[in-house]
Amino acid sequence: MAQHSDIQRNGPLSGIRVIDLTAVVSGPMSTMILADQGADVIKIERADGDFTRHVATRRGGHSASYLNNNRNKRSVVADLKNPDDIAMIKTLVQDADVFIQNFRPGVVDRLGLSYEVLSVLNPRLVYMSISGFGFDGPLANKPVYDPLIQALSALTTVQAGSDEERPRLVRTILPDKLTAVQASQAVTAALFARERTGKGQKVTLSMLDTVAAFLWASDMNGHTFVGDEMEVEASQSFHDLIYEVKGGYLSISIMQNKHWEALAHATGRPDIIDDERFKTTELRDINRDARLDLTQEMVRDLDRDTLLTALEEAGVPCAPVLTRREMRQHPQLEANGMFVEYDHPTAGRLRQTRPAAVFHGTPATDLRPAPELGEHTAEVRASLTPNPLADAS
């Protein structure tokens, strides 16, 4: 592991330097995860900055999107068409541990920043490439955004419930964010392998592959047994597990027999225990639409908070359906210490989540706001020692 004396971070990745040539969300979120865990992430931006610097929901000249995906990093402005700036990036790479980019396939080759070039300068380099659809094949060079991945991966039809229903987008950029988490995990796995072998490696990851792998764990059972694939995917249920009650909505999730019996008693409907359609876990699954219709009928006229208390006391898995404002005010998230506040020099007081994972042996306690565009350009350039290898490669 290279130790970098010009910036002190704490956390499990302290001493790791990441050169970040990513933009928008999937790449920047992945590098922020690494930065939150103590890595020194140097974000290379063009003169007008990451695209997300310019989107809506702004204060003090900063977008919330940029602030929420780029904290704990340093920003360096570089012109990727300028040979001197390319040489500067190569010099940075020689003393780095990780290089991450999410350009379309082929772009880094034209820039002279491919794995083949950079691994010669630094054989211990972990080189992560993130793409949308993949690195070869008919769609590899197409422009990509999150909804396109949701469509092509079948996530939209999974969300619809069946192949015959109108496809629906998940109302968050799940492929982007899931790819970010997968990328950060893959980088740390490659760093661990390097500790054993002494060698870096190239790692490739596409958003499409990430979502396909994610879906297979629970949504592709009908395509698991070769030769017995489903021709048309039947609806898992015509209902979401969201129930309308007086004063709002609840989610109730019944899996085990004891939970079904507890629901029966908590709602004053012990008769459902003897209903032959719902006697076992398998029967409750086979007759799921009837079960969910019955559950909705049972709870529709009950007060939300009264019912929630009764269900919780009976041991029924349940939760209130919250708005975003209610979520951040919920006592469980408060108990978890999930939200942090700190001051940004120009955007003012910010509220964000802490990193989800808490490292009790190597705590990551740094919290620095997302950088101004080019804030650290002079600092980083001044720390570089000119290296003829970077110019010659």
Rank of each mutant, 00 (worst) to 15 (best):
35 A>M: 05
35 A>W: 00
37 Q>C: 02
39 A>W: 02
39 A>S: 08
40 D>H: 09
40 D>M: 11
41 V>K: 12
42 I>L: 11
42 I>S: 12
43 K>Y: 01
45 E>T: 01
45 E>K: 00
46 R>Y: 03
46 R>P: 00
46 R>N: 08
47 A>D: 14
48 D>S: 04
49 G>Q: 06
49 G>H: 01
50 D>E: 11
51 F>M: 13
53 R>Y: 01
55 V>N: 12
55 V>A: 13
55 V>E: 13
56 A>V: 01
57 T>P: 02
60 G>I: 07
61 G>S: 09
62 H>A: 04
62 H>F: 05
62 H>L: 08
62 H>G: 03
62 H>T: 03
63 S>R: 06
63 S>I: 00
65 S>Y: 05
65 S>R: 15
65 S>Q: 11
66 Y>W: 04
66 Y>V: 00
66 Y>I: 00
67 L>N: 10
67 L>P: 06
69 N>A: 13
69 N>T: 02
70 N>Q: 14
70 N>S: 09
70 N>W: 00
71 R>V: 00
71 R>D: 06
72 N>W: 06
73 K>D: 01
73 K>T: 00
73 K>C: 01
74 R>I: 02
74 R>C: 04
74 R>A: 01
74 R>M: 06
75 S>L: 05
76 V>K: 02
77 V>P: 02
77 V>L: 13
77 V>Y: 08
78 A>V: 09
78 A>C: 07
78 A>Y: 05
79 D>W: 03
81 K>L: 12
81 K>I: 05
82 N>D: 13
82 N>R: 08
82 N>L: 04
83 P>K: 15
84 D>E: 11
84 D>K: 11
84 D>Q: 13
84 D>N: 11
85 D>G: 05
86 I>F: 07
86 I>V: 12
86 I>L: 15
86 I>T: 09
86 I>K: 15
88 M>K: 12
89 I>F: 03
89 I>W: 07
89 I>Q: 14
90 K>R: 14
91 T>Y: 03
92 L>E: 10
93 V>R: 13
93 V>A: 12
94 Q>H: 12
94 Q>F: 07
95 D>I: 07
95 D>V: 03
96 A>S: 10
96 A>N: 08
97 D>Q: 08
98 V>D: 13
99 F>P: 01
100 I>K: 14
104 R>T: 11
104 R>A: 14
104 R>W: 13
105 P>G: 14
105 P>V: 15
106 G>P: 03
106 G>D: 14
107 V>C: 03
107 V>H: 06
108 V>T: 12
108 V>A: 14
109 D>I: 02
111 L>I: 11
111 L>A: 13
112 G>N: 11
112 G>S: 10
113 L>S: 05
113 L>I: 02
113 L>Y: 01
113 L>P: 01
115 Y>F: 07
115 Y>C: 10
117 V>G: 07
117 V>R: 12
118 L>M: 11
118 L>A: 09
119 S>N: 09
120 V>A: 15
122 N>Y: 06
122 N>V: 04
122 N>R: 14
123 P>C: 15
124 R>W: 07
124 R>M: 05
124 R>F: 03
124 R>C: 12
